[in-house]
Design a protein around this nucleic acid. Structure first.
Lengths: 241, 241
DNA sequence: CTCGTCAGGATTGCATACAGTATACGGACA
DNA sequence: TGTCCGTATACTGTATGCAATCCTGACGAG
């Protein structure tokens, strides 16, 4: 290290360039492991209820047990796995009840988020929303499931971000990801309606109409909840919410 | 270990005694460490911004670094410490902005919680609430800060539990603890008002009036938020919310 | 006097080793 | 044949060791 060019320093330029966020930190291994395991859980490679053996995961990922354990810790507090003392980690099995409760909480948080967004939205914020809305519509016509899901997530995340409440944003992010995990594989015959509602939402936010934005989002979320309950017909389809 | 009386077995008697919950599991050390550290943070023994050195904590608690690390992981995801890669753990320093955002989220969650409670409350639930309310009133007249804080936390937790939404309860628990951490040491000149509002709340819940319960709780939470903002007079006092 | 460079100590991140506990299997006895 | 018990195995929980990285402060050049 004695003769290495000190490449860790921030690039030259005015200090105001700090808008580019912090310098890239060494990226701890546990974070990578967390992401990897989460991906495996969400895409069902690791099935709900499955017993996760630390040693196996460690070998599979090419690391030692230590970072795996730390990742499992976080996965537990985020609700993705259950950690039973002296027995190990199990992929969380969502119950009917829990899914509904989660959808209810999501509804409340998203409604508030929409209100805040309507109060804070700037011109460029609206522009971004319109762009995301457009991306969603396009994904809709091409029937690209992958893109639909992503577009939906992006839009909701953008609304949360506009609200300027970081605590709320993080919470919504967490809840939304779990909702998608429960909900996506089951039923989604309402992508068309969903994006119409999104359009309404964006309009309300653009108008700065907090009351209406909250109302629209509330209905939007409750529709999703309803759809979840009505799914006794395992009709395949692609919802984006 | 071969000749020890098998003292871990459940006491003799009918199996139906299982109502006493599960057998005490080996109680992982990390949990104890988590609780210990959280206590130290909440009571300000570990000051905000302070650098937490793993080795020191380990020695202080009489364990190795491993369980300390795992506890720190959880403390991070719960928002109590910041874990900077390759630098270590620092007690989280709450900003003005963050505290307000947290209070806002709390308001939303608690409002919903109150509505649910009004819809689900049984006779025995109401009885419990009345008991907790009474405990609070007593703590109020004896001006016992410790008991006041606890009584308040108990009441809110009970309301959340009555709502029968576990996801919501957990979230409220998390948020409330952090709110108390930020808020308690600063200003609390409204214990009297606070408990009057509690009384109103309990009544609304007992009547099964969801609309009103939500309204009361909303005002209650917003009052707290307001008080937080108005505290430019660091007048010592004892709030319970 | 300011800035760049570099050694030294301290601390984290990861890997490995050991001990304790839970589950599974197999044999003995009623 | 069914039940109970003892042993074996597998896995988790905890402890320790080592390398990489970061921060501090001092020294020297401009």
């Amino acid at each position: 290290m004695t003769s290495l060019p000190s490449g860790r320093r921030a690039p030259r330029g005015s200090l105001s360039a700090a808008a580019t966020r912090r310098v890239e930190r060494p990226a701890p291994l546990r974070q990578a492991v967390y992401d990897a395991l989460l991906e495996l859980i969400v895409n069902r490679t690791l099935a709900p209820g499955q017993h996760l053996v630390e040693a196996e995961l460690a070998e599979y990922l090419g690391v030692s047990r230590q970072p795996v354990r730390e990742a499992l810790q976080r996965l537990q507090t985020d609700g993705w796995v259950d950690l039973r003392p002296a027995q190990g980690a199990f992929v969380h099995t969502p119950t009917e009840e829990e899914a509904d409760q989660l959808l209810a909480v999501r509804s409340v948080l998203e409604t508030y988020s929409a209100k805040l967004a309507a109060e804070h939205a700037t011109a460029s914020d609206v522009k971004l929303l319109r762009k995301l809305q457009k991306a969603g519509e396009e994904a809709l016509v091409t029937a690209n499931v992958e893109r639909l899901v992503k577009a939906n997530a992006d839009l909701h995340a953008a609304v949360a971000a506009i609200g300027r409440n970081k605590v709320l944003s993080e919470m919504i992010g967490l809840v939304d990801r779990r909702v998608r995990w429960y909900y996506t594989p089951i039923a989604r015959p309402r992508s068309r309606d969903s994006w119409n509602e999104h359009a309404e939402l964006v309009t309300a936010i653009a108008d700065g109409d907090a009351e209406r934005a909250g109302e629209v989002m509330h209905n939007h979320a409750e529709q999703t909840r309803q759809t979840y309950h009505d799914r006794k017909t395992p009709e395949s389809s692609t919802d984006s919410d």
